[in-house]
C-alpha cells in the first residue's frame, strides 16, 4: 500500500470569530481525498507553525477575514521557515485586496483565494502545487 493523501492544516489566525468559510473548505478538501487537520478559531502564528510541524502537513491553509493578513501571513511564513518547514506550501483564503496579493506571493504564499472562489478551483490549485 502506498497511499499518501495530501495533509492540510486549516487554521484561522487572528481574532475574527467566523469560521464558516474555513469549515466549507475543510469539507471540500476532505471530499477531494485529503486529510484535513482543523484547528479552530483564534490561532496564533506560533500555534499554527507548531501544529504544522507535529502533523507533518504538506499544506497550511490560512483563513483570514479580519484584514490582518499583512501582519499575520509574514509571521506564519517566518515561523515555518524557522522550524525548517521550507517545503510546506501556504495558501490564503479570505478578504484580501488585489493590491496585497503580489507582495504576499513574493513572500512565498502559493495562492490566494477571495470570496466566491469555487472549491474545485482551490482543490485543483493545491493538487497542482503538491503534485502527489
Amino acid at each position: 500500500m502506498t497511499t499518501s493523501p495530501i495533509r492540510v492544516l486549516v487554521a484561522k489566525p487572528g481574532l475574527d470569530g467566523h469560521d464558516r468559510g474555513a469549515k466549507v473548505i475543510a469539507r471540500a478538501l476532505r471530499d477531494a481525498g485529503m486529510e484535513v487537520i482543523y484547528t479552530g478559531l483564534r490561532q496564533t502564528p506560533e500555534m499554527i507553525a507548531e501544529a504544522a510541524l507535529q502533523e507533518d502537513v504538506d499544506v497550511v491553509g490560512l483563513s483570514i477575514l479580519s484584514g490582518a493578513h499583512n501582519a499575520l501571513v509574514p509571521k506564519v511564513m517566518d515561523l515555518l521557515k524557522g522550524k525548517g518547514l521550507n517545503d510546506v506550501r501556504v495558501f490564503l483564503g479570505g478578504i484580501v485586496p488585489d493590491e496585497d496579493i503580489p507582495p504576499l506571493k513574493a513572500l512565498g504564499v502559493a495562492d490566494v483565494f477571495g470570496p466566491g472562489t469555487s472549491t474545485d478551483v482551490i482543490v485543483e490549485s493545491i493538487r497542482k502545487t503538491i503534485r502527489k
Binding site: 497511499t3 493523501p5 471530499d31
Partner: peptide, 20 residues
Amino acid sequence: SPFTGGAILGDRIRMRDLSG
C-alpha cells in the same frame, strides 16, 4: 471517509491549551 479517502481531523480544536 470510506467514499473519498479524505478525513477531517478535529481533535486539536479541544487541545489548544496544550499549544506552545
